[in-house]
Design a binder for these strands. Structure first.
Length: 587
RNA sequence: CGGGGCGUAGCGCAGUUCGGUAGCGCGCUUGGUUUGGGUCCAAGAAGUCGUCGGUUCAAAUCCGGCCGCCCCGACCA
């Protein structure tokens, strides 16, 4: 491609609303332009890079038996009503009516469409297993779509769906994806970790997220350096401390003026926070038979720990959670800051963390401003409807597997894999006849990778103060020829010859620009190999060869440059491919 | 949805306090100059000042509504 013809423009300054490095550089280098909040156009350079990422995904999907196809972006609402997600999913689902007044859905994902196809096409165990995938646009109207290109509303995703007759088959396909995903990310130059994750709106049995570790990530991960335990903080479990045994002491009401927080309370009474019980008031939306009801929830966790809302939502099977308003708290007879499960109205749903029953003689509120109870004991003084693990893992907590301290880190989710099981096939009656002639629901898995987000993460990882530094596998072109005065004729010939040799070339043929401008553009765009052809290099005996990733320059004679470029491309490719190795999926 | 900020030429910004009908840098066009790290000089083109309404002789500027974008929080595969 000739730069004089390339559609796009480099910018000296990034738009003011770009915050992340990847966002700034991708806009400045002419890879993307923003159209609206979370909505981007992909320009030719960006499109080439995304196509490369998508082709890597195709190769790895095909290698595990995937068949590429294409499913629609606009769906009739009926299928989403069948699975219940029409009712369960909130405003992030794009909904509209067609000209005939029918409810329509903009695809957030494609389980419903796949399952509809499955029930029409799969009739026999002989047709299973199968793996289908497509690379298609999704719309998710995130309430907050920030983070440049990392978090967008309209995006392209590779999503695959496995179909099996038995659970062993699902496990095989799940494991195949686990490996394939590592291959994809590593081939794109990105090192990721796989963490256990919440199944969220997908439902299902088991899930992993593939996380690119970076401080800009919006997810918090919990890692154990000792045994390798990894999990999203939403679901991370840990070994809870064993409280000292004590004989229950009599309940005692004490004045604790001005101690609305656990820290104040512990300081006032001169006790550790771990000897207190924290009351958290939430309102849960619970869906029953397509009807949403709001339910007040009184949560008790130990004072030194934080409530994990995902765990709470899962324990309650709640669709949504929000903090309760003060009026709602007062309405159940509690007092913000002094809330207590002791003596609360009977109809209030009390949920406690499983550490609480083992923790004797805690300090809890007295449901009266300025007063707390000493020696509150679960079972004797109050009872809960649900006892479950409800608290969030923190830095330094003990690993559930090996007991060593956990560490937290931020990450961006670049892919995920889900064992859906029969959640969709049962809801939509997608069954097959097994060997015994009995109808059984198809066992499904779903597996996604966002191609634009992956590109943004690669950009986030590979850059310096001058611009992008693409891995050879993702770079829009392999070679960038910079023609300078006295070198245009030779550069033209080199451009033609390299292309004939199968090399992908971006050729800066712009005659009116100074050398500095062209070098800066080349650094900004970040193509791995740069060849400079000018009067000076020719006088020195050839063209100047330079890698974007290195400061070294070398003059290569014209009759050797094509070989040199091909060798170097092969070397860069080999370097990346060396990272593609088998991985163990932990149980 | 709550809190904060912003909206003036393709990009970055000034002008708004104190109303008088728009300016700077980059980019773009033309001519010259320079020619290996964002040359220099000159002449140009380009903006319903987000939008609607109000106040006023007069609004980018004051007042109100709406829209959009960004950040923080809640939310979220």
């Amino acid at each position: 491609m000739r730069m004089s013809y390339l559609f796009g423009q480099t910018l000296r300054e990034a738009p003011a609303d770009a915050e992340l490095t990847s966002h700034k550089l991708l806009v400045r280098a002419g890879f993307v332009r923003q159209l609206g909040a979370g909505i981007f156009s992909v320009l030719p350079l960006g499109h080439r890079s995304i196509t490369k990422i998508e082709n890597i995904m195709r190769e790895e999907m095909n290698a595990i038996g995937g068949q590429e196809m294409m499913m629609p972006v606009v769906h009739p609402a009926e299928i989403w009503k069948e699975t219940g997600r029409w009712y369960e999913v909130g405003p992030e689902m794009g909904r509209f009516k067609d000209a005939g007044g029918r409810d329509m859905v903009l695809a957030m994902t494609h389980e419903e469409v796949v399952t509809d196809l499955v029930r029409n096409i799969i009739h026999s165990y002989r047709q299973l297993p199968a793996l289908i995938y497509h690379i298609q646009t999704k719309w998710r109207d995130e309430v907050r779509s920030r983070g440049g290109l990392i978090r967008v509303r309209e995006f392209t995703m590779k999503d695959s769906y496995s179909l099996d007759a038995d659970w062993e088959g699902l496990d095989r396909q799940y494991r195949a994806h686990y490996q394939a995903y590592f291959n994809i990310f590593r081939r794109a130059g990105l090192e990721v970790i796989a963490v256990k994750s919440d199944v969220g709106m997908m439902g299902g049995k088991e899930a992993h997220e593939f996380m690119y570790l970076t401080p800009i990530g919006e997810d918090t991960l919990v890692l154990c350096d000792s045994c390798g335990y990894t999990a999203n903080r939403q679901v991370a479990v840990f070994r809870k401390p064993e409280p000292q045994e004590e004989a229950p002491l009599p309940l005692e009401k004490v004045a604790t003026p001005g101690t609305k927080t656990i820290a104040d309370l512990a300081a006032f009474l001169n006790i550790p926070e771990s000897k207190t019980a924290k009351a958290v008031f939430m309102v849960a939306t619970i869906s029953e038979e397509q009807k949403d009801t709001e339910k007040f929830v009184f949560v008790v966790v130990r004072g030194d720990m934080e409530l994990n809302e995902t765990k709470l939502a899962n324990a309650l099977k709640a669709k949504a959670l929000r903090p309760a308003h003060e009026e709602e708290i007062r309405a159940i007879g509690a007092s913000p800051g002094y809330g207590s499960p002791v003596g609360i109205k009977d109809d209030v749903l009390v949920v406690v963390d499983d550490l609480i029953p083992r923790s004797p003689n805690l300090v809890a509120g007295a449901n009266e401003d300025g007063y707390h109870y000493l020696n509150v004991n679960y079972g004797r003084d109050y009872k809960a409807a649900i006892v479950a693990d409800l608290v969030a893992a923190e830095d330094g907590y003990a690993c559930v597997q090996c007991g060593e301290p956990l560490r937290t880190s931020r990450g961006v989710e670049v892919g995920n894999i889900f064992k859906l099981g029969t959640r969709y096939s049962e809801a939509m009656n997608a069954t097959f006849l097994d060997k015994d002639g009995k109808p059984k629901p198809v066992i499904m898995g779903s597996y996604g990778i966002g191609s634009g987000r992956l590109l943004a993460c690669v950009a986030e990882e590979y850059n310096d103060e001058y611009g992008l530094k693409w891995p050879i596998t993702v770079a829009p072109y392999q070679v960038h020829i910079v023609a300078l005065k006295g070198g245009f004729d030779v550069a033209e010939q080199l451009y033609t010859d390299l292309q004939k040799a199968g090399v992908e070339v971006l050729y800066d043929d712009r005659e009116e620009l100074s050398a500095g401008v062209k070098f800066n553009d080349a650094d900004l765009i970040g193509i791995p190999i740069r060849l400079t052809v000018g009067g000076r290099s020719l006088k020195q005996g050839g063209v100047e060869f330079k890698l974007r990733s290195s400061d070294e320059r070398e003059i290569v004679p014209l009759d050797q440059i094509i070989d040199k470029v091909q060798e170097e491309i092969a070397r860069l490719l080999a370097e990346i491919n060396a990272r593609v190795v088998p991985v163990e999926m932990p149980d």
